[in-house]
């Protein structure tokens, strides 16, 4: 068993884990949207504190949430560099030939990094606190209106849940195959690039072969038990939203209100503080 950083369910049985997955999905989506309305550092701090609060009550180790940013670190650095070097407007801080660094450029880059990392960490919380089954169940409910346009909601949900269900199985299988080929002297971690690419073949082919075998067996098993996705099916676990979910909605709504007030009513808390202190950072 190995740990994959992004989207590993981390069972602690906390309140966040026990929230209705539908509510969790909607709140996560809302969070993803609302984070684009954050304009000031003060509100970024508020969002970060909010995230910390959620992580603490969900009892997930803070480190593993931070680690989820690792997956997008390249993207972060890349956009930051682009922004710093190619943002040409505003107060110039440094200049070498065509490269001009402005205060606004740095400001923009820092905010971009904050936004993206808060985005990734926020969505990782959904994955950390809900099992794949819960997520697909929730998705199925939320996609229910699509049934009216004859979209096969249930089939998509079952395909999704089977795919998710088999990720750990295939990981385990991959581990076994890697071990078996290593035992036969295969070296995966040294040699030239072309050699390393070639070294993947003895893993991929057995893996494909076993995936097809599993798929066939599963299809047969579904058939022999007369599985049919079309008639109206009842469910074993009914999802129920309760007072916990209500409180969660209120907390996230409060966060949203603060963010929107900052942007549209107070026109950035940062500006207010700067004005109060009489700073002029942007050379306006």
């Amino acid at each position: 068993m190995r740990d994959f950083a992004f989207g590993q369910y981390y069972p602690t049985g906390s309140v966040v884990h026990r929230l209705d997955p539908r509510v969790k999905i909607i709140l996560s989506l809302f969070y993803l949207v609302i984070i684009f309305f954050v304009v000031s550092y003060v509100t970024y701090l508020i969002v970060a504190l909010f995230l910390l609060f959620v992580v603490l009550i969900s009892k997930i180790p803070v480190l593993s949430v931070l680690k989820s940013v690792k997956a997008v670190i390249f993207l972060l650095v890349f956009t930051a560099v682009l922004n710093i070097f190619f943002y040409k407007e505003g107060k110039v801080i440094a200049e070498w030939g065509i490269i001009v660094i402005t205060a606004q450029g740095i400001d923009f880059a820092v905010k971009m990094i904050l936004r993206l990392s808060l985005l990734v960490m926020g969505s990782s919380i959904l994955m950390f606190t809900s099992t794949p089954t819960e997520i697909t169940d929730g998705m199925e409910y939320l996609m229910a209106p699509l049934k009216f346009v004859r979209f096969p909601v249930h089939d998509v949900a079952i395909i999704m849940s089977i795919a998710l269900r088999f990720i750990p199985t295939l990981m385990e299988e991959t581990d076994k195959i890697i071990m078996a080929q290593k035992a036969r002297g295969a070296a995966f971690d040294c040699g030239k690039f072309t050699e390393r690419v070639k070294a993947v073949v003895p893993i991929l082919i057995p893996l494909f072969a076993s995936s097809f075998r599993r798929a066939e067996e599963l299809a047969l098993a579904l058939d022999t038990r007369c599985y049919d996705a079309t008639p109206k099916r009842t469910r074993m676990k009914k999802l129920k939203a309760g007072w916990k979910d209500f409180i969660a909605v209120i907390i996230v709504a409060a966060l949203g209100t603060v963010i929107l007030l900052d942007k549209y009513y107070f026109l950035s808390f940062d500006r207010m503080i700067e004005n109060a202190l009489g700073w002029n950072l942007w050379g306006a």
Partner: peptide, 10 residues
């Protein structure tokens, strides 16, 4: 390994 035939590939 267990089920060694699953490692055949060539």
């Amino acid at each position: 390994f267990q089920y060694p035939e699953y490692q055949l590939f060539d």
